[in-house]
């Protein structure tokens, strides 16, 4: 199996390069991550993040043949050789496939990602109807892998000002929660030509989301609420 992988170690390399690997795989190597682990067995200087290897932790997002994906749930047979692997686009590179995600998390934190409800909690759980709970489906499943935000040109140009698809998806997750009482503050927080309105609905985010979520739809809902609130 042939791979062409982005390599850069600031300790050693003057500038980034693409390194080719031709590695025999074992029959048990089914996912791209298995192959990367195999490569690392041969060359321990190759660095990447990985953990759960089943698509729930969000560690191993990378750009594979031009598309952002999670290596652990990408079947090797699904992708064309030679497999070109680069770090997620648009974020500073620390080393090899490892990017600096501070900006991404900063935007996530900026939407105040927690249920806000200052009423005294009841003795037992707050009640929520199954229908109201269903509103959170397609939102809370986000794993913060950053595939979406780093596939979004608006996030590439303004990562410091545009919240990005992941953060906005989470923003709507809290707006949609009947237990959260801060919808107005949340809309105020996002009512900004940069924070929300850099989204031009090109839907790269929905296209790459490994969990099948649709941040554009969530962004549209936030915008609708803003317009409704104003009119």
């Amino acid at each position: 199996m042939r791979f062409s992988i982005y390599r850069y170690n600031p300790d050693v390399d003057a500038k980034p390069r693409m390194q080719d690997y031709d590695i025999p795989l074992e029959p048990t190597d089914r996912m791209l991550l298995d192959a990367l682990v195999r490569i690392k067995e041969h060359d321990d200087t190759f660095s990447f993040r990985r953990s759960c290897r089943e698509g729930v932790c969000g560690s191993d997002a990378m750009n594979v043949n031009g598309k952002n994906r999670l290596a652990c749930i990408t079947k090797i047979t699904e992708i064309k050789e030679p497999i070109v692997i680069r770090p997620l686009p648009g974020l500073p590179i620390i080393r090899d496939l490892i990017v600096d995600m501070s900006q991404f998390f900063k935007q996530y934190h900026s939407i105040e990602p927690y249920v806000k409800n200052e009423t005294p909690p009841p003795e037992r759980e707050r009640l929520q109807s199954p229908e109201d709970r269903d509103e959170l489906n397609g939102l809370y499943e986000c794993i913060l892998c950053a595939c979406c935000s780093t596939a979004c040109p608006s996030f590439w140009w303004n990562p410091d000002k545009f919240v990005g698809p992941a953060g906005l998806l989470w923003a709507y997750r809290f707006i949609a929660d009947t237990r959260d009482l801060a919808t107005n503050d949340r809309l105020d927080n996002l009512e900004d030509p940069y924070r929300l309105f850099r989204c031009h609905s090109i839907m790269n985010c929905a296209d790459v989301c490994p969990k099948g979520l649709n941040p554009t739809a969530a962004i549209n809902k936030i915008r609708d609420l803003m317009v409704k609130r104003a009119l």
Binding site: P121, E125, R126, L127, Q128, S129, P130, R133, L136, Y140
Partner: peptide, 15 residues
Amino acid sequence: EHYGMPFDRLDNGKI
């Protein structure tokens, strides 16, 4: 649940 955990719900609204 009070922290915001999105538990599934029964028809009566409980966890």
